[in-house]
Design a protein around this nucleic acid. Structure first.
Lengths: 231, 231
DNA sequence: CCTACAAATTAGGTATACCTAACTACAGGA
DNA sequence: TCCTGTAGTTAGGTATACCTAATTTGTAGG
Protein backbone atom coordinates (compact mmCIF):
# COMPACT_ATOMS: atom_id res chain seq x y z
CA UNK A 1 0.00 0.00 0.00
CA UNK A 2 2.86 2.37 0.85
CA UNK A 3 0.52 4.90 2.41
CA UNK A 4 2.56 7.97 3.27
CA UNK A 5 2.18 8.75 6.93
CA UNK A 6 0.14 11.92 7.00
CA UNK A 7 -1.75 13.93 9.53
CA UNK A 8 -4.55 14.75 7.14
CA UNK A 9 -5.78 12.71 4.18
CA UNK A 10 -3.59 13.82 1.26
CA UNK A 11 -0.17 12.62 0.29
CA UNK A 12 2.79 14.97 0.24
CA UNK A 13 2.56 14.99 -3.56
CA UNK A 14 -1.05 16.07 -3.59
CA UNK A 15 -0.32 18.88 -1.15
CA UNK A 16 2.46 20.09 -3.41
CA UNK A 17 0.16 20.17 -6.41
CA UNK A 18 -2.38 22.19 -4.44
CA UNK A 19 0.24 24.66 -3.24
CA UNK A 20 1.59 25.09 -6.75
CA UNK A 21 -1.86 25.76 -8.19
CA UNK A 22 -2.56 28.29 -5.45
CA UNK A 23 0.72 30.06 -6.06
CA UNK A 24 0.57 30.06 -9.86
CA UNK A 25 -3.09 31.11 -9.93
CA UNK A 26 -2.25 34.42 -8.29
CA UNK A 27 -4.63 36.51 -6.19
CA UNK A 28 -7.46 36.23 -8.71
CA UNK A 29 -7.02 32.43 -8.87
CA UNK A 30 -7.06 32.18 -12.65
CA UNK A 31 -6.75 28.81 -14.35
CA UNK A 32 -3.26 27.32 -14.36
CA UNK A 33 -1.76 25.45 -17.29
CA UNK A 34 -0.33 21.94 -17.16
CA UNK A 35 2.97 23.23 -18.47
CA UNK A 36 3.30 25.83 -15.71
CA UNK A 37 2.56 23.23 -13.06
CA UNK A 38 5.01 20.78 -14.57
CA UNK A 39 7.65 23.47 -14.51
CA UNK A 40 6.99 24.48 -10.93
CA UNK A 41 6.87 20.91 -9.63
CA UNK A 42 9.75 19.64 -11.77
CA UNK A 43 7.75 16.73 -13.15
CA UNK A 44 6.74 15.74 -16.70
CA UNK A 45 3.53 17.28 -18.10
CA UNK A 46 2.11 13.77 -18.46
CA UNK A 47 2.44 13.27 -14.71
CA UNK A 48 0.53 16.49 -14.09
CA UNK A 49 -2.35 15.48 -16.36
CA UNK A 50 -2.56 12.16 -14.56
CA UNK A 51 -2.60 13.65 -11.10
CA UNK A 52 -5.16 16.32 -11.98
CA UNK A 53 -7.49 13.76 -13.50
CA UNK A 54 -7.29 11.76 -10.31
CA UNK A 55 -7.82 14.79 -8.06
CA UNK A 56 -10.78 16.05 -10.05
CA UNK A 57 -12.83 12.85 -9.96
CA UNK A 58 -12.35 11.96 -6.29
CA UNK A 59 -15.46 12.02 -4.06
CA UNK A 60 -14.56 15.46 -2.76
CA UNK A 61 -12.64 16.97 -5.67
CA UNK A 62 -9.70 19.18 -4.75
CA UNK A 63 -9.43 20.75 -8.20
CA UNK A 64 -11.62 21.70 -11.12
CA UNK A 65 -9.99 20.39 -14.22
CA UNK A 66 -11.08 20.50 -17.84
CA UNK A 67 -9.44 18.66 -20.68
CA UNK A 68 -7.20 21.15 -22.50
CA UNK A 69 -8.53 23.87 -20.22
CA UNK A 70 -6.18 24.10 -17.26
CA UNK A 71 -7.01 23.77 -13.55
CA UNK A 72 -8.34 25.75 -10.64
CA UNK A 73 -8.60 24.82 -6.99
CA UNK A 74 -12.01 23.80 -5.66
CA UNK A 75 -13.05 25.27 -2.32
CA UNK A 76 -11.79 22.16 -0.55
CA UNK A 77 -8.53 22.35 -2.49
CA UNK A 78 -7.99 25.99 -1.64
CA UNK A 79 -8.72 25.34 2.01
CA UNK A 80 -6.11 22.59 2.14
CA UNK A 81 -3.55 24.60 0.14
CA UNK A 82 -3.90 27.50 2.54
CA UNK A 83 -3.51 25.17 5.48
CA UNK A 84 -0.24 23.87 4.08
CA UNK A 85 0.96 27.43 3.42
CA UNK A 86 0.01 28.30 6.99
CA UNK A 87 2.08 25.36 8.21
CA UNK A 88 5.00 26.40 6.05
CA UNK A 89 5.06 29.97 7.24
CA UNK A 90 4.47 29.17 10.88
CA UNK A 91 7.29 26.64 10.76
CA UNK A 92 9.62 29.18 9.13
CA UNK A 93 8.76 31.74 11.79
CA UNK A 94 9.33 29.15 14.49
CA UNK A 95 12.67 27.98 13.12
CA UNK A 96 13.80 31.58 12.84
CA UNK A 97 12.62 32.91 16.18
CA UNK A 98 12.88 29.89 18.46
CA UNK A 99 15.60 27.75 16.89
CA UNK A 100 17.74 30.58 15.48
CA UNK A 101 17.92 29.19 11.95
CA UNK A 102 19.67 31.38 9.37
CA UNK A 103 17.20 32.99 6.96
CA UNK A 104 18.32 31.02 3.95
CA UNK A 105 17.74 27.61 5.57
CA UNK A 106 14.15 28.20 6.59
CA UNK A 107 12.55 27.24 3.32
CA UNK A 108 14.05 23.81 2.86
CA UNK A 109 13.23 22.59 6.36
CA UNK A 110 9.72 24.07 6.29
CA UNK A 111 9.06 22.58 2.87
CA UNK A 112 9.64 19.12 4.30
CA UNK A 113 7.98 19.48 7.69
CA UNK A 114 4.85 21.34 6.53
CA UNK A 115 3.34 18.04 5.39
CA UNK A 116 3.91 16.11 8.56
CA UNK A 117 3.04 18.26 11.56
CA UNK A 118 -0.23 17.69 13.40
CA UNK A 119 -2.89 20.27 14.14
CA UNK A 120 -1.67 20.23 17.69
CA UNK A 121 1.87 21.08 16.62
CA UNK A 122 0.60 23.90 14.45
CA UNK A 123 -1.52 25.24 17.28
CA UNK A 124 1.32 25.04 19.80
CA UNK A 125 3.92 26.84 17.75
CA UNK A 126 1.38 29.50 16.76
CA UNK A 127 0.64 30.07 20.44
CA UNK A 128 4.35 30.10 21.35
CA UNK A 129 4.96 32.75 18.70
CA UNK A 130 1.96 34.88 19.75
CA UNK A 131 -0.08 34.04 16.62
CA UNK A 132 2.13 35.90 14.16
CA UNK A 133 0.60 37.26 10.96
CA UNK A 134 3.81 37.74 8.99
CA UNK A 135 6.65 35.28 8.45
CA UNK A 136 10.39 36.17 8.40
CA UNK A 137 10.28 36.80 4.65
CA UNK A 138 7.40 39.25 4.99
CA UNK A 139 4.66 36.91 3.74
CA UNK A 140 1.19 36.85 5.27
CA UNK A 141 0.41 33.75 7.29
CA UNK A 142 -3.06 32.40 6.41
CA UNK A 143 -5.39 32.30 9.40
CA UNK A 144 -6.78 29.11 10.91
CA UNK A 145 -10.05 29.55 9.03
CA UNK A 146 -8.29 29.82 5.70
CA UNK A 147 -8.14 33.55 5.14
CA UNK A 148 -4.99 35.06 3.71
CA UNK A 149 -4.96 38.85 4.06
CA UNK A 150 -4.14 40.22 0.62
CA UNK A 151 -1.27 42.70 0.41
CA UNK A 152 -1.19 45.18 -2.40
CA UNK A 153 2.45 44.87 -3.26
CA UNK A 154 4.17 44.63 -6.62
CA UNK A 155 7.28 42.94 -7.94
CA UNK A 156 10.30 45.21 -7.93
CA UNK A 157 11.01 43.75 -11.36
CA UNK A 158 7.74 45.33 -12.59
CA UNK A 159 8.63 48.84 -11.42
CA UNK A 160 8.63 51.28 -14.34
CA UNK A 161 9.45 54.62 -12.76
CA UNK A 162 12.04 55.51 -10.18
CA UNK A 163 10.88 56.12 -6.62
CA UNK A 164 11.09 55.23 -2.97
CA UNK A 165 9.43 52.09 -1.67
CA UNK A 166 9.12 49.89 1.39
CA UNK A 167 10.12 46.28 1.02
CA UNK A 168 7.05 44.15 1.56
CA UNK A 169 8.48 40.66 1.24
CA UNK A 170 11.25 38.62 -0.33
CA UNK A 171 11.00 35.20 -1.93
CA UNK A 172 12.35 32.26 0.06
CA UNK A 173 13.01 30.10 -2.99
CA UNK A 174 16.61 30.93 -3.90
CA UNK A 175 19.21 30.37 -1.22
CA UNK A 176 21.91 32.42 -2.98
CA UNK A 177 19.64 35.41 -3.63
CA UNK A 178 18.54 35.25 -0.02
CA UNK A 179 22.09 35.32 1.32
CA UNK A 180 22.97 38.17 -0.98
CA UNK A 181 19.90 40.19 -0.07
CA UNK A 182 20.48 39.70 3.63
CA UNK A 183 24.08 40.87 3.26
CA UNK A 184 22.86 44.02 1.48
CA UNK A 185 20.22 44.80 4.08
CA UNK A 186 17.34 43.97 1.76
CA UNK A 187 14.90 42.79 4.37
CA UNK A 188 11.13 43.18 4.86
CA UNK A 189 10.27 46.66 6.11
CA UNK A 190 13.45 48.30 4.83
CA UNK A 191 13.24 51.50 2.79
CA UNK A 192 14.40 51.21 -0.79
CA UNK A 193 15.20 54.00 -3.26
CA UNK A 194 15.08 52.67 -6.79
CA UNK A 195 16.40 54.02 -10.09
CA UNK A 196 16.16 52.08 -13.33
CA UNK A 197 19.61 51.34 -14.58
CA UNK A 198 20.02 52.83 -18.01
CA UNK A 199 22.88 50.60 -19.15
CA UNK A 200 21.58 47.17 -18.01
CA UNK A 201 18.08 45.80 -17.47
CA UNK A 202 18.66 45.99 -13.72
CA UNK A 203 18.31 48.67 -11.07
CA UNK A 204 20.39 50.98 -9.01
CA UNK A 205 19.12 50.93 -5.43
CA UNK A 206 19.85 52.50 -2.09
CA UNK A 207 18.83 50.92 1.25
CA UNK A 208 17.45 52.92 4.17
CA UNK A 209 19.27 56.19 4.64
CA UNK A 210 22.57 54.88 3.30
CA UNK A 211 24.45 57.15 0.96
CA UNK A 212 25.71 54.40 -1.30
CA UNK A 213 23.90 53.02 -4.33
CA UNK A 214 24.46 49.52 -5.59
CA UNK A 215 23.33 47.45 -8.54
CA UNK A 216 20.58 44.89 -8.37
CA UNK A 217 20.01 42.35 -11.14
CA UNK A 218 16.69 41.66 -12.75
CA UNK A 219 16.79 38.12 -11.35
CA UNK A 220 16.98 39.35 -7.79
CA UNK A 221 14.40 42.05 -8.54
CA UNK A 222 11.95 39.24 -9.25
CA UNK A 223 12.39 38.01 -5.66
CA UNK A 224 11.42 41.32 -4.08
CA UNK A 225 7.91 42.67 -3.52
CA UNK A 226 7.49 46.33 -2.64
CA UNK A 227 4.85 48.89 -1.77
CA UNK A 228 5.03 52.52 -2.77
CA UNK A 229 5.83 54.82 0.12
CA UNK A 230 3.55 57.82 0.63
CA UNK A 231 5.76 60.68 -0.58
CA UNK B 1 9.45 7.41 -8.86
CA UNK B 2 7.58 8.59 -5.77
CA UNK B 3 10.79 9.12 -3.83
CA UNK B 4 9.84 9.94 -0.25
CA UNK B 5 11.35 13.25 0.71
CA UNK B 6 13.99 12.37 3.22
CA UNK B 7 16.89 14.03 4.90
CA UNK B 8 19.08 10.97 4.77
CA UNK B 9 18.98 8.17 2.21
CA UNK B 10 16.41 5.70 3.60
CA UNK B 11 12.68 5.73 3.26
CA UNK B 12 10.44 6.02 6.30
CA UNK B 13 9.67 2.32 5.93
CA UNK B 14 13.29 1.28 5.99
CA UNK B 15 13.90 3.37 9.11
CA UNK B 16 10.98 1.66 10.80
CA UNK B 17 12.36 -1.77 10.01
CA UNK B 18 15.73 -0.78 11.45
CA UNK B 19 14.17 0.62 14.62
CA UNK B 20 12.07 -2.51 15.07
CA UNK B 21 15.08 -4.81 14.67
CA UNK B 22 17.04 -2.72 17.17
CA UNK B 23 14.23 -2.80 19.67
CA UNK B 24 13.37 -6.50 19.29
CA UNK B 25 17.00 -7.58 19.32
CA UNK B 26 17.43 -6.32 22.89
CA UNK B 27 20.69 -5.19 24.44
CA UNK B 28 22.61 -8.23 23.21
CA UNK B 29 21.26 -7.68 19.65
CA UNK B 30 20.25 -11.27 19.07
CA UNK B 31 18.73 -12.33 15.77
CA UNK B 32 15.12 -11.30 15.25
CA UNK B 33 12.49 -13.49 13.60
CA UNK B 34 10.40 -12.47 10.62
CA UNK B 35 7.26 -13.17 12.60
CA UNK B 36 8.26 -10.85 15.44
CA UNK B 37 9.06 -8.06 12.97
CA UNK B 38 5.80 -8.56 11.13
CA UNK B 39 3.96 -8.32 14.44
CA UNK B 40 5.77 -5.19 15.54
CA UNK B 41 5.40 -3.40 12.21
CA UNK B 42 1.84 -4.60 11.55
CA UNK B 43 2.68 -5.94 8.10
CA UNK B 44 2.44 -9.42 6.58
CA UNK B 45 5.44 -11.75 7.07
CA UNK B 46 5.86 -11.91 3.31
CA UNK B 47 6.43 -8.15 3.25
CA UNK B 48 9.13 -8.48 5.88
CA UNK B 49 10.97 -11.19 3.96
CA UNK B 50 10.88 -9.01 0.87
CA UNK B 51 12.18 -5.92 2.60
CA UNK B 52 14.97 -7.77 4.41
CA UNK B 53 16.15 -9.39 1.20
CA UNK B 54 16.35 -5.97 -0.37
CA UNK B 55 18.13 -4.39 2.57
CA UNK B 56 20.67 -7.18 2.83
CA UNK B 57 21.86 -7.08 -0.76
CA UNK B 58 22.18 -3.30 -1.17
CA UNK B 59 25.70 -1.89 -1.74
CA UNK B 60 26.00 -0.95 1.92
CA UNK B 61 23.77 -3.54 3.61
CA UNK B 62 21.80 -2.32 6.59
CA UNK B 63 20.99 -5.81 7.86
CA UNK B 64 22.49 -9.27 7.94
CA UNK B 65 19.80 -11.65 6.84
CA UNK B 66 19.91 -15.40 6.34
CA UNK B 67 17.20 -17.46 4.73
CA UNK B 68 15.19 -19.07 7.55
CA UNK B 69 17.68 -17.64 10.00
CA UNK B 70 16.32 -14.25 11.13
CA UNK B 71 18.02 -10.85 10.93
CA UNK B 72 20.49 -8.67 12.73
CA UNK B 73 21.49 -5.08 12.10
CA UNK B 74 24.78 -4.44 10.35
CA UNK B 75 26.98 -1.70 11.76
CA UNK B 76 25.54 0.77 9.27
CA UNK B 77 22.02 -0.34 10.14
CA UNK B 78 22.59 0.02 13.87
CA UNK B 79 24.09 3.45 13.37
CA UNK B 80 21.04 4.62 11.44
CA UNK B 81 18.59 2.98 13.85
CA UNK B 82 20.23 4.76 16.77
CA UNK B 83 20.10 8.04 14.89
CA UNK B 84 16.36 7.66 14.38
CA UNK B 85 15.90 6.75 18.05
CA UNK B 86 17.93 9.84 18.96
CA UNK B 87 15.64 11.93 16.78
CA UNK B 88 12.57 10.39 18.34
CA UNK B 89 13.65 10.99 21.90
CA UNK B 90 14.97 14.49 21.30
CA UNK B 91 11.71 15.41 19.61
CA UNK B 92 9.71 13.98 22.52
CA UNK B 93 11.79 15.97 24.97
CA UNK B 94 11.37 19.09 22.88
CA UNK B 95 7.61 18.71 22.51
CA UNK B 96 7.31 18.15 26.24
CA UNK B 97 9.59 20.88 27.49
CA UNK B 98 9.26 23.60 24.87
CA UNK B 99 5.80 23.06 23.39
CA UNK B 100 4.09 21.76 26.56
CA UNK B 101 2.67 18.64 24.96
CA UNK B 102 0.87 16.24 27.28
CA UNK B 103 2.92 13.11 27.99
CA UNK B 104 0.62 10.77 26.10
CA UNK B 105 0.80 12.70 22.83
CA UNK B 106 4.57 12.76 22.54
CA UNK B 107 4.98 9.39 20.91
CA UNK B 108 2.66 9.81 17.97
CA UNK B 109 4.07 13.17 16.90
CA UNK B 110 7.68 12.07 17.38
CA UNK B 111 7.04 8.84 15.49
CA UNK B 112 6.08 10.88 12.44
CA UNK B 113 8.62 13.70 12.64
CA UNK B 114 11.67 11.57 13.50
CA UNK B 115 12.01 10.63 9.85
CA UNK B 116 11.88 14.12 8.42
CA UNK B 117 13.98 16.46 10.52
CA UNK B 118 17.40 17.54 9.27
CA UNK B 119 20.68 17.26 11.10
CA UNK B 120 20.46 20.97 11.71
CA UNK B 121 17.07 20.62 13.36
CA UNK B 122 18.33 17.82 15.54
CA UNK B 123 21.36 19.85 16.53
CA UNK B 124 19.32 22.96 17.30
CA UNK B 125 16.76 21.30 19.53
CA UNK B 126 19.50 19.36 21.33
CA UNK B 127 21.29 22.65 22.02
CA UNK B 128 18.06 24.37 23.09
CA UNK B 129 17.40 21.56 25.56
CA UNK B 130 20.97 21.54 26.91
CA UNK B 131 21.88 18.20 25.30
CA UNK B 132 19.60 16.07 27.45
CA UNK B 133 20.50 12.43 28.07
CA UNK B 134 17.09 11.21 29.22
CA UNK B 135 13.71 11.73 27.56
CA UNK B 136 10.41 12.42 29.36
CA UNK B 137 9.67 8.69 29.62
CA UNK B 138 13.02 7.98 31.24
CA UNK B 139 14.71 6.49 28.16
CA UNK B 140 18.35 7.15 27.33
CA UNK B 141 18.90 9.37 24.32
CA UNK B 142 21.60 7.93 22.03
CA UNK B 143 24.55 10.28 21.60
CA UNK B 144 25.50 11.88 18.29
CA UNK B 145 28.16 9.26 17.69
CA UNK B 146 25.68 6.42 18.11
CA UNK B 147 26.27 5.36 21.67
CA UNK B 148 23.30 4.49 23.83
CA UNK B 149 24.25 4.26 27.50
CA UNK B 150 22.88 0.92 28.74
CA UNK B 151 20.73 1.03 31.87
CA UNK B 152 20.47 -2.03 34.03
CA UNK B 153 16.77 -1.95 34.62
CA UNK B 154 14.21 -4.73 34.54
CA UNK B 155 10.56 -5.02 33.62
CA UNK B 156 8.27 -4.65 36.59
CA UNK B 157 6.36 -7.56 35.06
CA UNK B 158 9.45 -9.77 35.62
CA UNK B 159 9.74 -8.96 39.32
CA UNK B 160 9.53 -12.11 41.39
CA UNK B 161 9.93 -10.90 44.96
CA UNK B 162 8.38 -7.97 46.73
CA UNK B 163 10.56 -4.92 47.32
CA UNK B 164 11.13 -1.24 46.86
CA UNK B 165 12.30 0.11 43.50
CA UNK B 166 12.90 3.30 41.60
CA UNK B 167 11.02 3.73 38.34
CA UNK B 168 13.57 3.85 35.55
CA UNK B 169 11.33 4.41 32.53
CA UNK B 170 7.86 3.85 31.16
CA UNK B 171 6.88 2.78 27.68
CA UNK B 172 5.46 5.45 25.41
CA UNK B 173 3.53 3.00 23.23
CA UNK B 174 0.13 2.83 24.87
CA UNK B 175 -1.73 6.11 25.28
CA UNK B 176 -4.24 4.72 27.79
CA UNK B 177 -1.59 3.13 29.99
CA UNK B 178 0.34 6.36 29.87
CA UNK B 179 -2.62 8.47 31.01
CA UNK B 180 -3.39 6.03 33.77
CA UNK B 181 0.21 5.89 34.97
CA UNK B 182 0.52 9.64 35.00
CA UNK B 183 -2.69 9.96 37.01
CA UNK B 184 -1.30 7.48 39.57
CA UNK B 185 2.05 9.24 39.85
CA UNK B 186 3.94 6.47 38.10
CA UNK B 187 6.64 8.58 36.57
CA UNK B 188 10.40 8.12 35.99
CA UNK B 189 12.32 8.58 39.21
CA UNK B 190 9.39 7.86 41.51
CA UNK B 191 9.78 5.35 44.33
CA UNK B 192 7.67 2.23 44.05
CA UNK B 193 6.91 -0.36 46.73
CA UNK B 194 5.79 -3.57 45.10
CA UNK B 195 3.98 -6.63 46.43
CA UNK B 196 2.91 -9.51 44.21
CA UNK B 197 -0.81 -9.80 44.31
CA UNK B 198 -1.76 -13.22 45.57
CA UNK B 199 -5.24 -13.32 44.04
CA UNK B 200 -4.53 -11.99 40.52
CA UNK B 201 -1.42 -12.09 38.33
CA UNK B 202 -0.91 -8.36 38.99
CA UNK B 203 0.71 -6.35 41.73
CA UNK B 204 -0.15 -4.22 44.67
CA UNK B 205 1.97 -1.09 44.62
CA UNK B 206 2.52 2.08 46.59
CA UNK B 207 4.01 5.27 45.12
CA UNK B 208 6.53 7.44 46.93
CA UNK B 209 5.67 7.85 50.58
CA UNK B 210 1.93 7.52 50.07
CA UNK B 211 0.08 5.35 52.55
CA UNK B 212 -2.32 3.92 50.02
CA UNK B 213 -1.74 0.78 47.96
CA UNK B 214 -3.38 0.24 44.62
CA UNK B 215 -3.58 -2.56 42.08
CA UNK B 216 -1.56 -2.64 38.93
CA UNK B 217 -2.34 -5.06 36.11
CA UNK B 218 0.21 -7.28 34.44
CA UNK B 219 -0.35 -5.36 31.18
CA UNK B 220 0.69 -2.07 32.72
CA UNK B 221 3.55 -3.82 34.58
CA UNK B 222 4.99 -4.65 31.16
CA UNK B 223 5.25 -0.92 30.42
CA UNK B 224 7.35 -0.12 33.48
CA UNK B 225 11.08 -0.61 33.91
CA UNK B 226 12.54 -0.40 37.40
CA UNK B 227 15.85 -0.56 39.24
CA UNK B 228 16.23 -2.06 42.68
CA UNK B 229 16.78 0.57 45.36
CA UNK B 230 19.74 0.07 47.66
CA UNK B 231 18.01 -1.04 50.89
C1' DC C 1 12.42 -41.88 11.40
C1' DC C 2 9.01 -39.43 9.63
C1' DT C 3 5.16 -36.58 9.91
C1' DA C 4 2.61 -32.49 11.06
C1' DC C 5 2.69 -27.80 11.89
C1' DA C 6 4.40 -23.25 12.31
C1' DA C 7 7.52 -20.18 10.15
C1' DA C 8 9.32 -18.51 6.12
C1' DT C 9 9.47 -17.91 1.27
C1' DT C 10 7.93 -17.39 -3.52
C1' DA C 11 4.66 -15.95 -6.92
C1' DG C 12 1.61 -12.82 -8.47
C1' DG C 13 -1.16 -8.66 -7.73
C1' DT C 14 -2.50 -3.56 -5.96
C1' DA C 15 -1.89 1.56 -5.42
C1' DT C 16 0.94 5.72 -5.70
C1' DA C 17 3.58 8.64 -8.30
C1' DC C 18 6.64 9.07 -11.31
C1' DC C 19 8.78 8.35 -16.37
C1' DT C 20 9.20 8.26 -21.91
C1' DA C 21 7.30 7.95 -26.35
C1' DA C 22 3.65 8.43 -29.36
C1' DC C 23 -0.41 10.65 -30.53
C1' DT C 24 -4.20 14.42 -30.50
C1' DA C 25 -6.16 19.13 -30.06
C1' DC C 26 -6.21 23.81 -30.66
C1' DA C 27 -4.86 28.46 -31.86
C1' DG C 28 -2.41 31.66 -34.80
C1' DG C 29 -0.16 32.69 -39.25
C1' DA C 30 0.07 32.15 -44.28
C1' DT D 1 -9.03 27.42 -44.86
C1' DC D 2 -5.37 24.75 -43.93
C1' DC D 3 -1.22 23.82 -41.58
C1' DT D 4 2.07 23.75 -38.26
C1' DG D 5 3.86 23.93 -33.65
C1' DT D 6 3.08 23.84 -28.82
C1' DA D 7 0.36 22.10 -25.25
C1' DG D 8 -1.90 18.41 -23.59
C1' DT D 9 -3.20 13.54 -23.47
C1' DT D 10 -2.89 8.51 -23.74
C1' DA D 11 -0.40 4.26 -23.50
C1' DG D 12 2.77 1.58 -21.45
C1' DG D 13 6.54 1.03 -18.16
C1' DT D 14 9.45 1.60 -13.42
C1' DA D 15 10.21 1.50 -8.32
C1' DT D 16 8.45 1.27 -3.60
C1' DA D 17 5.98 -1.06 -0.34
C1' DC D 18 2.42 -3.29 0.61
C1' DC D 19 -1.09 -7.53 0.03
C1' DT D 20 -2.99 -12.76 -0.44
C1' DA D 21 -2.44 -17.41 -1.69
C1' DA D 22 0.36 -21.22 -2.51
C1' DT D 23 4.47 -23.51 -1.53
C1' DT D 24 8.67 -24.83 0.94
C1' DT D 25 11.61 -25.46 5.18
C1' DG D 26 12.87 -27.05 9.43
C1' DT D 27 11.95 -28.91 13.73
C1' DA D 28 9.62 -31.11 17.59
C1' DG D 29 6.59 -34.95 18.82
C1' DG D 30 4.95 -39.50 18.18
Amino acid sequence: MAAPRRTNGNSESVDNYLKAILSLGGVEQSRVTIKALAGRLCVAPASVTNMLQKLSVSPLPLVEYERHGGVQLSNAGRRRALEVVRHHRLIETFLYQVLDYPLEELHEEAERLEHFISERFEQRIAAKLGHPRIDPHGHSIPTLDGEMPARESMLLADVMEDGTFAIDSISDRDVDHLKWMEACGITPGARLRVRKNASSDGYSVRIGRSSRDFDLSREVARDIRIVRLPK
